[in-house]
Design a protein around this nucleic acid. Sequence first.
DNA 1: CGATTTTTTGAATCATATCAACGTACGTGG
DNA 2: CCACGTACGTTGATATGATTCAAAAAATCG
Lengths: 190, 190
Amino acid sequence: MYTELLNHIKTYVQLQPQQEEVVCSHMQFKTFKKKQFLLEPGKVCQGNYFVIKGCIRLYFINKKLNEQIVNFGLENWWIADQDSLMNQKPSACYIQTIEPSEVLLLTEKERTTLIDDVPVMETYFRIMMQKAYVASQRRIGFIFNMTDEERYLHFNKVNPGFMQRVPQYMLASYLGFTPQFLSRLRAKKV
Amino acid sequence: MYTELLNHIKTYVQLQPQQEEVVCSHMQFKTFKKKQFLLEPGKVCQGNYFVIKGCIRLYFINKKLNEQIVNFGLENWWIADQDSLMNQKPSACYIQTIEPSEVLLLTEKERTTLIDDVPVMETYFRIMMQKAYVASQRRIGFIFNMTDEERYLHFNKVNPGFMQRVPQYMLASYLGFTPQFLSRLRAKKV
DNA sequence: CGATTTTTTGAATCATATCAACGTACGTGG
DNA sequence: CCACGTACGTTGATATGATTCAAAAAATCG
């Protein structure tokens, strides 16, 4: 029984006690060392990863040959390349641990059978997608309507302590500017 | 019976003939003149709008008091302020027609009863959310990894004829730069 | 401890914004 | 159906925020 996952699900939908076991039976528990890859370009994303412990990043290599971070995954978040997953096509992305991590893998196949067994899980996944969509719409709003400095300050306010967990250059990449620029921002503020 | 909507649904999930009527019975057909508002800031978004005919924009007023377009809605797209809808909170956005438009409104209440009546619709909405999420993730990728010029050229390649349908300043807003800059880009290319 | 990774700093450069003024088109009421 | 007013598009000059390149400094890891 994976209580972190079940608690997360139960904040969005109701689950009967006997369904809890069914849900967990579709999951694969996995551990990864620091900097290990859960997905590499060219492969189809295996499924959705629920982070129990640790910190993970989803990124790709852009035209200028720099890493571009798409998303982070922390405790109680799902992370996956939805594009690869939904269309069952080879990914262009890496998913890699930043810290040693424990995750639950729900493969696409298991997700289907899980929904057959526990139909309310379709609602849960719909809500997860909706939340992810709203979050990325907000992120687009931030990108267009804040300077890089404002976006950095806002991110730090909303995610205090995150800076301590990931290297600065990764945060810079996620926020969409250069590590040098982030360094200058920090210098200004001390 | 709204064939445009039913065809759209049936490209993603299976629908029994008798379910088709049920689906349509939850929809409200509405027509709007050019520049009419479907949603204004301070009000909770009524529901999801399926565009049968016309062109609609979702935008908000940013700090610099400019309009910032979040999304467009064209034929066979859904458009809504998901943030307002999901959290039943007052919207910060306008939804406004760009052309005279015909839409189907599915209120949040009706969406719930529709799913009770036709459970497969939950899957359909999950897929819609997933597609919207993937699209906005891709958009973030474009913003970070293309110059404004590249993004404009790419948009025009992927959406030919769109420029003829909306004023230039709206496209500039959606792409995240100024109308002046778009004007200069166009001047260069002739 | 040395090797590698990450962060900092400086100078030059570039892409895009801003402000302001002028052209053009279009739809609306007379 | 024409004229006027408003909305939209263009252009030039200047300003600015962020990048790039290069190199040194600091932190982390085996």
